[in-house]
Amino acid sequence: MSSAVNTFQDELARRGLSIEQAHAMLQTMMEIRAFEEMAEELFARGLVHGTMHLSIGQEASAVGLSAPLRPDDYLLNTHRGHGHCLAWGSDPKLMMAEFMGKETGYCRGRGGSMHIADVESNNLGANGIVAGGIPISVGVGLSIKLRKTDQVVTSIFGDGAANEGAFHESLNMASIWNLPVIYYCENNQYAMSMSVERAFNVEKISQRAAAYGIPGKTVDGNDLLAVRDVVAEAVDRARAGHGPTLIEALTYRYKGHSKSDRQLYRTRDEVKEWQSRDPILRFAAFLEIDSETRKAKQAEARQVIEDALTFATESPEPDVSTILEGVYA
C-alpha cells in the first residue's frame, strides 16, 4: 500500500487527505460491511421479501471510487450497489427502509435493494440489468456536455457486464464524443458462476479500452488509496474534456452472488486467500490503528446500521391504495 520509506501521514498528505478524512473513509467501509452483514442477517431471519447482492469484501472499491468525486457528479450503480450508495453519502436509514420495502425508503418500497436511487443527490440508481446503466451513461455524459458543466458521471458495472453488447456501443460513443464518463468495472472474478478466466480471452478487462482509443487502467480494488488515485486521474481527465477512462478494479465478493448461491464454482481456499487481503483490515493497518480502536469503530458502524434498522422497522408499509402511483408523470 505505502512504500517502505513513507509514513502513512506522508501518503495521505501527498494526496491532500487529512487523517480525519482517512478515518472517515475507513468508517464508511465499516458501515458498508455492517449494512451488508445486517442485510444478510435480516434475510436469514426471514424478514426481507426479495433478493440482495452483498458487496462484503468490495468496500475499498466503493469508497475509493467516490473519494475524488463531487456531490454534483452523477452515479450509475450496479445491482451489487449498497456500498456505492453509502460511499455516495446516502442515508442508511432510507436505504434500510427501501431494503425492507417501506414507504419511507428511497423508492417508497417500489424498488428494493436492486434499485436504490436518489435522483435529488444525482444518484441515478442501481440497476437490476447487467450493463443496463452503461448506455445511460452516454446520455448523462451528453447532457453534461450540452449543459456545459464540468460534472462527471461514474458508470459502475461488473466483469459480466463487459461482455454485453451495450458495453461496446456505449464506450465507443462516449469515446468519439469525449464524454465525461468514468467507466468503472468492478471485476470481482465471477459473473454469477462464470469466472473471468472462462469468460474472457484477454488478461485484463481494461485492455478493452484500446478498442475505443481511451485509457484503460487495472487497479488493486482492495487498496483504497490505489483506487482513489486511479479514479482521481480519470476524473481530472474527464473534467478537462478529454473523455472517458475504463478502470478495472480487481476485487472479490466474499458472499455468493445472491441469496440462493451454493458457491459450487469456487473453493473455500480461494475465498480465504482473498480474505487475507481484506480491504478494511488493510486500510486500518495502514493507518496504524490498533485492534482495540478498530473494534470500537466497528461497533460504532454497527450502531449506525442498528439505528437504520430501527427506523426501517418502525416505518409504515406502502398503502395498497397507492399501488398505481408513479407509472406515469
Binding site: L76, L124, P135, S137, V138, G139, S143, L146, E169, M173
Partner: peptide
C-alpha cells in the same frame, strides 16, 4: 436509446 434515457433523467 440509452443516450435518450440518461439525458432525459438529467434534465434534457
Amino acid at each position: 436509446a440509452g443516450a435518450c434515457v440518461g439525458s432525459a433523467v438529467t434534465g434534457m
